[in-house]
Amino acid sequence: MTISEPITFLWFDGQAEEAATLYTSLVPNSALGDRLHAPADTPGPKAGSLITVDFTLNGRPFIAMNGGPAEGHAEFNDSVSIMLTCDTQEEIDRLWDGLIEGGGEPVACGWLKDRFGLRWQITPKRLLELNSSSDKDVAKRSFEAMMTMVKIEIAALERAARGE
């Protein structure tokens, strides 16, 4: 038996293409792919309506589906998120601002909720390095600093790691 590469499947209420377009515009090495239109009426989309949009984020496959209202189905929540790691504060700020725009909400510790309700973690690579430092004091200070932040600020992490 052959199993294909896992694909993350995201349920939207009519905004699948809008969401996929936003996400691919923000993440490098990303693209919109095939679109599937309903060949017949469904309980949600009617014949001819867009059902799914394939897309990739930095080469990783996703499918966004116009499944209709989340009633009877789980809405996006904090138990699932997409984590993007960034090298620079500029990358963090660009992604953060792009995903918050239009009704998203900052949460805490680098997490946000976009306007579609999907959760994201915008994480500096430096945070991961500092939090896993062999110097336990550096790891503790950087972790404690992160816990006070909403959007992660690399310069503030570096200061905390140094004990400043």
Rank of each mutant, 00 (worst) to 15 (best):
D87Y: 01
N29C: 00
G44T: 06
D114I: 11
R115C: 02
G117Q: 07
E17H: 13
S133C: 02
D13K: 06
I82H: 07
D54G: 11
L99N: 01
A160Y: 04
P28N: 01
T148S: 11
P28D: 03
S4I: 14
L50D: 10
S49M: 12
T56S: 08
G44D: 07
V138R: 00
L50F: 12
L157W: 04
K113L: 07
I92P: 05
A160F: 14
N77E: 09
S25G: 15
L95N: 06
R141T: 00
T8L: 08
F12S: 10
D87T: 08
I51W: 04
M146D: 05
K46I: 07
G48C: 08
M65W: 06
D114Y: 10
F116L: 04
M147T: 15
R126F: 10
Q15Y: 10
L118G: 07
A38L: 12
W96G: 00
T123Y: 07
L32I: 11
M83H: 08
A108E: 14
F116P: 03
L128P: 06
Y23P: 05
N58C: 15
A19T: 10
A64Q: 08
I92M: 04
Q15W: 08
G33A: 08
S132V: 07
S81L: 02
E18Q: 12
A40L: 12
W120M: 00
L50C: 02
M149C: 15
P45Q: 06
K125Y: 09
K140R: 14
D137L: 14
P6E: 03
E5Y: 04
K113Y: 12
E153H: 08
A156G: 06
V150Y: 02
D41H: 13
D97I: 02
G110F: 05
F143C: 05
I51C: 08
V80T: 14
D114W: 12
F9R: 10
V150P: 09
A20F: 10
S79W: 01
W120I: 02
G103M: 03
F143S: 13
A16N: 09
E164Q: 15
P39Q: 13
G110R: 04
G117Y: 05
W120P: 05
A74L: 11
A156E: 15
W96H: 00
T24C: 02
I7G: 09
T8V: 15
N131C: 14
D137Y: 02
G110W: 05
